[in-house]
Amino acid sequence: MAVQALDGTRVPIDWQRLAMPAVLIVVGYGLIPAYASSYLVEAILLPFLALSLAAVGLNLLTGYCGQLSLGSSAFMAVGAFAAYNFNLRIDGLPLPATMILAGISAAGIGVVFGLPSLRLRGFYLAVSTLAAQFFVQWALTKFGWFSNYNPSGVISAPHLIVAGFPLDGATGRYLLSVTTVIVLTAVVWRLVNSATGRNFIAVRDNETAARVIGVPVLRTKLLAFAISSFIIGVAGVLWAFTYLRTVEPAGFNLDRSFQILFIIIIGGLASMRGAFLGAAFIVVFPLLLSRIGAFAFGDLFDSGVLDMSQRIVLGALIIIFLIAEPSGLSALFDRLKRRIG
């Protein structure tokens, strides 16, 4: 089969390329909303989507542009609290606009904490992004205004309405989440395959050569921080509004930053698919572990043991991945596909 192109020639339809998006749309907008249990949505899909988006954002900065950051959780917090305040303080602001403004707020903070990247690299940069982590958490706890003077600093999700449709139920929140993730992932996908994305990779692979051929290195790094933080900020909104529904600043701690970093390491640096594979693994793995643990050890396997064994297995996995498969699950996936196909 073929379609008529604009210039009149007939081009064959590339079924292979259309297959993936088609399956995603049927599953994402058809099967899941129709059949998924609310447990599947609330406990697995919603955190999976928010973490995937955060990982897509961090991957842009760390995987593509080579700037190591431990501040992801801070940018999620900025997104979440900014969205809460925009929604609270501007009457009738549509939800999509709230999310965009929250992303822009996170981007602004991201650029500020990206400034050290102009001088620092690798480990030193990572340490300096910790400043973002501590500063943001401190500011959100210290100034009650951010949580509208809630005594424990907790914010709760507002009513979620888009174009008159209420989206407060599990399915509604899922649809909001999946749509946001698809749109932003498409944007990032276009970006990394554009000249700007190649500038990111050039800066990552050889900063000196990049500068000499005319890549605006400083601007490129700050742009990476801005866009990455925007995406992570919106992921924070999803985390707070669609998954948890109530969050406090302490929910966005260093552990979360590490979790997102682990997602892109396990999934595969500089791979869009890797962000999703890694997030799926991070969300599903503890659930599997607790099932297996309970099955094997019964009551001995309480939450303390679960937590500890989870950390141990995860730590070991990251070391194994870094040594044996630095390109992560995404590369494993490719190899598997080649073997089968």
């Binding site: 970006l191 554009s194 000249a195 700007t196 190649r198 500038n199 990779i201 050039a202 990552r204 692979d205 050889n206 000196t208 050569a209 990049a210 051929i213 005319g214 890549v215 742009l223 866009i227 500089a270």
Partner: peptide, 24 residues
């Protein structure tokens, strides 16, 4: 001093980055 993560063609294309004006 090449960009190992890019294809040959994209490495070469980077050599003209100084002529680009379009924003991201």
């Amino acid at each position: 001093a090449l960009f190992g993560g890019l294809s040959v063609r994209n490495n070469i294309a980077c050599g003209r980055v100084h002529t680009r004006r379009a924003s991201f």
